[in-house]
């Protein structure tokens, strides 16, 4: 756990970068620090590994004040990933990844073996090991950057805009891989981004900062979307937050209607799998199907896309077992909202 205790950072010249920040970043979770530029999120991150020293207040990792520790030793125990990866251009990919194990006193052979394993883990084949950073694409460099930060298996990782320098398609892939990696590794991660969508997608917790180094809100992505504490957070999270918050709930509790209630005939194949809707003698394909495990957002999307405004649910075997109509969905969401509000009151 990383604990900020009333941390203040005032730069020489008097500008306040971080203003009385207190928060707890839970162990094994990913906390994303997000906010507009100049909000102190990067400064806060860099105070964890003492790249920046706080003016007052304390930062503790698992109860130990970082201020009392040897800077270099502290940093070797914390993975560090930065924008554009910051790879050493004069070293091969393998030696880049082997850096921290070597600093920790591993032999060259051990360090390289560990590095090779890590490269595989981030999806880079062994053929990349002997290349230099200049020979890699931005996405590949960023993966090497992540591998380098993981090489010594640190319990804590700091990531400063790690995915912002690559194009959206590559970023999407990196996000997926990173989530999978984090699921296996369970590191305590603090990540900075200016992209709220990235924060919502990757964060177990999100800390929204506002100008002047104030923490505006700290909570799960769902809390942020559904209960922003003020207009700033609501604005920052975005206008379609209602729709996006549907990503966090599954369709498990969503009631369905019988297959005959669609307003048109649902055509099934011999096995009972939905094929399409018969409309005026023509069979139009369904827009897709959902299962109980899919999100409410997906159900909403299907209902909108469907030629008859009805989303089709299937069981595990792919056979149709229920329908959700526009108005069923609207009713359900209204009840859900009222229930949430009631919980909030209580």
């Amino acid at each position: 756990m990383i604990t900020f205790e009333d941390v203040v950072k005032i730069y020489p010249g008097g500008s306040t970068a971080v203003d009385h920040l207190s928060m707890e970043l839970p162990t094994g979770k990913m906390t994303v620090l997000v906010g507009p530029s100049g909000c102190g999120k990067t400064t806060s991150l860099r105070m964890i590994n003492r790249m920046v020293e706080p003016t007052s207040g304390r930062i503790l990792i698992d109860g130990r004040d970082v201020a009392g520790q040897d800077e270099a030793l502290l940093r070797r125990g914390i993975g560090y990933v930065i924008q554009h990866a910051g790879l050493f251009p004069h070293k091969t990919v393998l030696d880049n990844v082997a850096t921290v194990p070597l600093l920790l006193g591993k032999t060259r052979r051990e360090a390289r073996a560990a590095a090779l394993e890590l490269l595989e883990r981030v999806g880079l084949a062994a053929e990349f090991a002997g290349r230099y950073p200049a020979q890699l694409s931005g996405g590949q460099q960023q993966r090497v950057g992540v591998a380098r930060a993981l090489a010594a298996d640190p319990p804590v990782m700091l990531m400063d805009e790690p995915f912002s320098a690559v194009d959206p398609v590559v970023r999407e892939g990196l996000h997926r891989e990173f989530l999978r990696l984090q699921q296996d590794l369970g590191k305590t991660i603090a990540m900075v981004t200016h992209d709220i969508d990235e924060a919502i997608k990757l964060g177990d917790r999100v800390a929204v900062f506002r100008q002047g180094g104030h923490l505006a809100q700290f909570g799960t992505p769902q809390e942020l979307l559904e209960q922003p504490v003020d207009d700033f957070v609501a604005e920052f999270v975005g206008r379609d937050r209602g729709l996006r918050s549907l990503s966090f709930d599954t369709a498990a509790d969503l009631p369905v209607s019988p297959l005959t209630d669609g307003g048109a005939e649902l055509v099934l194949d011999e096995a009972g799998r939905p094929v399409g809707w018969r409309l005026g003698g023509v069979v139009q394909p369904t827009a897709g199907v959902f299962t109980k495990a899919d999100s409410l957002r997906m159900v909403t999307d299907l209902a909108i896309m469907s030629p008859v405004g009805v989303a089709v649910r299937v069981g595990a075997d792919g056979t149709a077992d229920g329908l959700v109509r526009h108005h069923d969905l609207v009713d359900f969401l209204a009840t859900r909202r009222d229930r949430r509000a009631a919980e909030q009151e209580a």
Partner: peptide, 18 residues
């Protein structure tokens, strides 16, 4: 020098002479 690379080196725990 690319200051980001130097920043990464420090952040990984290299001592100033390293």
């Amino acid at each position: 020098l690319d200051h980001r690379v130097v920043d990464a080196a420090k952040g990984m725990g290299m001592r100033p002479w390293q």
